[in-house]
Simulated scan of single mutants.
Amino acid sequence: MAERSDFSFLDEAEATCRLAMDPAATGIDLCLILERDALLPAVESIDAAGFFIEDVAVLDVAEGYQARYHFRRFDTKGRIELRVTAPHDDPHIPSIANIFQGAEWHERESMDFYGVTFDGNPNPARLLLPEDATIKPLEKDEKSRKSYLDLMPEFTIVECAEGHPIEELAAKRQAEREEAERKAAEEAKKAEEEAKKAAEEEAAKQSEEAGEAG
Rank of each mutant, 00 (worst) to 15 (best):
Y69S: 03
T76H: 05
F71I: 03
R73F: 07
I99E: 08
R83W: 03
R68A: 15
R72D: 04
L82D: 12
Y69P: 04
T76C: 14
L82Y: 06
E81Y: 08
F71W: 03
I99L: 13
S95D: 15
I93Y: 12
R79H: 06
R79V: 07
A97S: 13
A86K: 05
K77I: 11
I93S: 12
A97T: 09
I93C: 13
R68E: 09
F71V: 13
G78T: 03
T76F: 08
H88G: 01
I93E: 06
L82R: 08
Q101I: 04
D90W: 00
S95L: 07
D75Q: 01
D89Q: 00
A97V: 13
D75S: 14
H70P: 13
P94S: 11
A67R: 03
I96L: 14
D75R: 10
R83P: 05
V84R: 05
I80D: 10
H88Q: 00
R72K: 07
L82E: 07
I99C: 14
I80R: 06
P91K: 02
F71M: 06
V84H: 14
R83D: 12
R72Q: 05
R83N: 15
R68V: 02
K77Y: 15
P87D: 01
F71K: 08
R83Y: 11
H70I: 11
I96A: 06
P91Y: 03
R68I: 14
F74V: 15
H70Q: 10
I96Q: 11
G78W: 03
E81D: 04
A67G: 01
A97Y: 01
D89W: 00
A86G: 13
I99N: 15
P91T: 01
R73T: 05
F100D: 12
F74K: 09
F71Q: 09
A97I: 10
Y69Q: 03
I93H: 02
Y69M: 08
N98I: 15
F74R: 04
Q101R: 15
R79K: 14
H88L: 02
E81K: 03
T76M: 03
F100V: 07
G78N: 01
